[in-house]
Simulated scan of single mutants.
Amino acid sequence: MVNFAAALEPVVDLVFPPRCPLCGEALARHGGLCAACWSTLVLPGEPSCARCQRPLAHHGDGHEPDEGESGLVCAPCLAQPPRHDGISAATLYTEPSRKLVLAFKHGRKVALAGLLSRLMLARLPVLEGAWLIVPVPLHRWRLWKRGYNQSALLATRIAKARGVPLVVDALERIKPTPSLGGLGRRARAQALSGAIRARPSRAGQLLGAQVLLVDDVLTSGATTDACVRALKKAGAARVRIACFARVLDEAIDDARANAVEAMAG
């Protein structure tokens, strides 16, 4: 059977030469970054909290925690356990990841879904048992204005790659919410109060389900927390979060310190 996409690839490359979406450097093929831009992405490091991915301090004796110590939990999660059952972020929210997100989310460069989802898949652990994949929803007004739900595009790619059922409309945003940028934690929670619920027609699928909740960026966690609350209220047994970029300043500082240490060594 002819693979038309592969057959047309040389023609597409001729008409639209592959370029790095960050710097415009020529590439061998579409769907990636140049070597220089790859090196600017900051990945979540280890050791980290098993529940929230927050970086944990090294032992200070030269001993690096191994995989057997991956169940360590940070103090904030011990003091106030999160509603979710883990976070998998592909990158930390720095200037390069921000540019990719803005181009994807507001620049209508939907083809970036392939690159972003591949990076997310690389950081996503094996999901044991039966799972459902659910995207963070947009309110219908914002969906009409933008034309697509960026989280749904990522969720679709991840579901196909993992062979996991996608329930794109499991959640619905029943009231519009203002931009959360610049709002404090309490104000964000108030803005999202009652805004997101599980769709009643999907109640049977969500009851007892393990859900992978997909979003593009995790900032304060207010939106995903509202989604997790709605999913568990509907009876979901577990909800894990997968995102492309995560705002976590202490993790960025830790990653930079490790890079400096590696260069010095």
Rank of each mutant, 00 (worst) to 15 (best):
F244L: 13
S201V: 12
R19M: 00
P178F: 03
G45A: 02
H106T: 06
A26P: 09
K232E: 05
Y93G: 10
E250T: 09
A35T: 13
I241L: 15
Y148G: 01
I174Q: 10
A50K: 07
G204P: 10
Q210N: 08
D85F: 05
D13H: 01
C77E: 03
P21V: 10
D66A: 11
G265I: 08
C74K: 11
D13S: 01
T224L: 15
L14F: 00
F244Q: 08
E67T: 07
G24Q: 10
L121V: 03
I174E: 14
V136T: 13
M1K: 05
R185C: 05
D85E: 14
P44D: 06
K232F: 07
A113N: 02
L115I: 05
R185M: 13
A28M: 10
A35N: 09
K99C: 14
R246Y: 07
G221S: 10
G31Q: 06
L143R: 14
A189Q: 12
L33Q: 07
P47W: 15
D216W: 12
A259R: 15
V217T: 01
L56A: 02
A50F: 13
R142L: 10
V12A: 00
V126P: 06
L153Y: 15
F16E: 00
L27G: 02
T224R: 13
I133R: 11
S220G: 15
A7F: 00
